[in-house]
Computed example of a mutant assay.
Amino acid sequence: MDRVSRSFEILLVEDDAIIRMDLALCLSDLGHSVREAADADKAVALITDGMNFDLLVTDIDMPGSMDGLALAAYVRDLQTGCHILIISGGTHLPPADLPLGCVCLRKPLMLSDLESALSKFEANH
């Protein structure tokens, strides 16, 4: 299992409350600081209010004015150095369909999946 030594400030965006709570707990247990949003609109509000984060973890399919891919593109345009992890229970997207530098994982996630993705971000920081 890959261990991440760096602590990330994470913005977690997931509309399913149970999945969001589980992911937040896993990420916190790995030593990261996590803020949660139930959809992209709430995430944009946090960003507009000045939230600082260096990793966006977002689901793709969510209610609201934009989905997770649009949110990822928004964040990528706003903060080019921010790492982005996209999670999806549905369609698996090829790398060409993702914003530059994004990693995509399929649900359900294992703790080892999260650790592996975070170690890639740490290596590229």
Rank of each mutant, 00 (worst) to 15 (best):
D67S: 06
S116Y: 00
G64D: 08
M51S: 08
I47G: 03
V13T: 07
G90P: 10
N52G: 14
S119N: 07
M1P: 11
E122Q: 11
A72K: 09
D67F: 08
L46F: 15
L118Y: 04
L93M: 14
L78E: 10
S116H: 05
A70K: 08
A40Q: 05
D29N: 12
P95G: 13
K120R: 14
V44K: 06
L27S: 08
K120M: 11
I87Q: 06
R76C: 12
D39F: 02
R76V: 10
D113L: 00
D29S: 08
F53V: 02
L69F: 12
D2R: 07
L23D: 02
G81H: 15
I86N: 01
V44C: 07
D49W: 07
R76G: 10
D16Y: 05
S88C: 08
H92Y: 11
L100Y: 09
T91L: 13
D61V: 11
L71K: 11
D54H: 03
G90W: 13
H125K: 08
L109Q: 01
A24T: 08
L11Y: 07
A72F: 09
L30A: 09
R76P: 11
L78K: 14
T80G: 11
N124H: 12
G68P: 07
D67N: 15
V57Q: 04
L55Q: 03
G90L: 14
P94G: 13
C26N: 12
M62A: 04
D29F: 06
R76F: 12
G81C: 09
S5T: 13
L105P: 04
A38F: 09
V103K: 08
D113E: 08
T91Y: 10
D97W: 10
S5V: 11
N52S: 15
I86Q: 01
C104M: 15
S65W: 09
L111D: 06
G31W: 00
V57R: 00
K107N: 06
A117W: 00
L111W: 06
A117P: 00
A123W: 04
E115C: 09
E115W: 00
I86A: 03
L118M: 15
Q79F: 09
